[in-house]
Design a protein around this nucleic acid. Structure first.
Lengths: 135, 135
DNA sequence: TCCAATATGTTATGTTATTACGTGCGTTGC
DNA sequence: GCAACGCACGTAATAACATAACATATTGGA
């Protein structure tokens, strides 16, 4: 899991989906990825979902649960994908990926204090990015 | 917004949906609420979604985005719903609602440092609760 | 080569959420 | 009283998101 992008041999579909996400300015839904890949031969949602699942497993992309969309990871090689936070601008849709060890630790210990052992976290902030707030 | 439950005059549908969520052990999806309220005359998803929307607005319930479900707020009167975190047990489905000012502050300042102004946050942890981990 | 694992293709279906339109009902201001 | 309004509600249709089930193809060892 979580390996450098170039060390992985992605399949054709995985490559196409990953490339689509990497070149997108905003998170994309599975169906909008599907639409963008029709010309490449994609016909069904499952082709997208299967690729997405693998890419997440490889740590190359993230799923944004609050908006049912997916983004390429900004730091695919760093290996610390466990508690990434995402700030999603509601105006331009762009995403800031925040990777903060202190916050991760704090949240993890909060969970522990509540007798909870975390296997996966979703931290998503919605609001306005700098640029959009000014305009 | 965010007012004591008894100070609000809920409509009939809102009352039914709220009562359903309060008496549930686990988060419920909109459609499972609908099913539970068929006998009360509910026929369509929109009846549920409209009530849910209002109840969220009133601070009486929370939406769990990672599992497309809803729970009654444990502290409907506390007024600090802005950055609640939820620990969702993947075994028993029960939810622990964590309200921690320090973490909220930390996360908020993280966002600020990234030039982001937060309007809404989603913090959801998935894993195992104490009871389920032991068993 | 043969086997097993993995990836792919396709159809159908399940689940979650919203749009669009119309009705009823209580309140406010005249 | 009674328009005008706001708001909750009812209903049908549909959009958007996701998976099940089954068949076929490809790949990479033993």
């Amino acid at each position: 899991m979580t390996a450098p992008a170039e060390a992985l041999k992605l399949t054709k579909n995985q490559t196409l989906v990953y490339r689509t996400l990497k070149s997108a300015e905003e998170p994309l839904s599975a169906y909008s990825i599907l639409d963008q890949l029709r010309d490449e031969g994609f016909r069904a949602p499952l082709q997208v979902y299967r690729a997405l699942e693998k890419l997440i497993e490889f740590g190359l992309i993230h799923r944004l649960e609050s908006i049912n969309s997916f983004v390429a990871c900004r730091h695919p090689d760093c290996g610390t994908h466990e508690m990434a936070a995402f700030a999603i601008c509601e105006s331009c849709n762009r995403v800031i990926e925040i990777n903060d060890a202190a916050m991760a630790g704090h949240l993890a210990s909060l969970a522990r204090n509540n007798g909870f052992s975390v296997s996966h976290s979703t931290i998503e902030l919605r609001g306005l990015c700098d640029t959009c707030r000014v305009h």
